[in-house]
Design a protein around this nucleic acid. Structure first.
Lengths: 101, 101
DNA sequence: CAAGCCCATCGTAATTTTACGATAATAAAT
DNA sequence: ATTTATTATCGTAAAATTACGATGGGCTTG
């Protein structure tokens, strides 16, 4: 990208909403989150069984959801249990609600 | 991308929600839509004045929002008036609502 | 018909995303 | 201490995204 202006400054809510939306902007990640909602929690391996994707790809999607704050991982050796991050989930929820008025 | 499986088939709602989310996944596009909500409608030129971005860049963002179905353009020569596509907007709204339960 | 205004599109470049296989890391169990 | 199970990370490659300037097309006005 040719960026003449480095960063454009948007309002915090705008940036945050875009960040959440971006994380939701892939069908696999939507499906993962739906799965997490229905199961409340699950392990990486469960998802690898459900989706026809490489384990590393699933892991990458989980990483993005985690970076966006939508999920969190809890160590349950040798597995990792992923759950919705309820706090940020609620923030996202109200940002989207406000956005759609 | 190395795609061994061509396309993964997700449920329609999942694909649609991801498509809307992807379109919302950039702060400039969020800001454009907020602007459109407050003004109800506006011209491309108005946005070029508001955002420190090249006219072609604004146009490209508008194109993506249009492709996602979130906005529509009406010819008002020599300008083009952009508005929220209310029908799809409502679809997006309820998809996000359902998603966040 | 020419000139001007507004906007989309083209061509281009840097960056990011998406995906894979292979490898490394971590903790438990043997 | 070695093995096993599970998951993250690395290296890589193709494609998509984001941005710019320049060009072109459509419509109105002179």
């Amino acid at each position: 990208m040719k960026r003449s202006l480095g960063h454009i400054e948007y309002k915090d809510d705008t940036e945050t909403l875009a960040k959440f939306a971006k994380a939701l902007g892939h069908p696999t990640r939507i499906a993962i989150l739906k799965h997490l909602e229905s199961q409340s929690c699950c392990f990486t391996g469960d998802l690898v069984d459900v989706f026809p994707l490489a384990q590393s790809t699933i892991s990458q999607h989980l990483k993005e959801l985690k970076n966006a704050g939508l999920i969190q991982g809890e160590l349950k050796p040798p597995k990792i249990k992923y759950c919705i991050n309820q706090e940020n989930w609620n923030i996202a929820k109200s940002l989207f609600q406000d956005f759609f008025k």
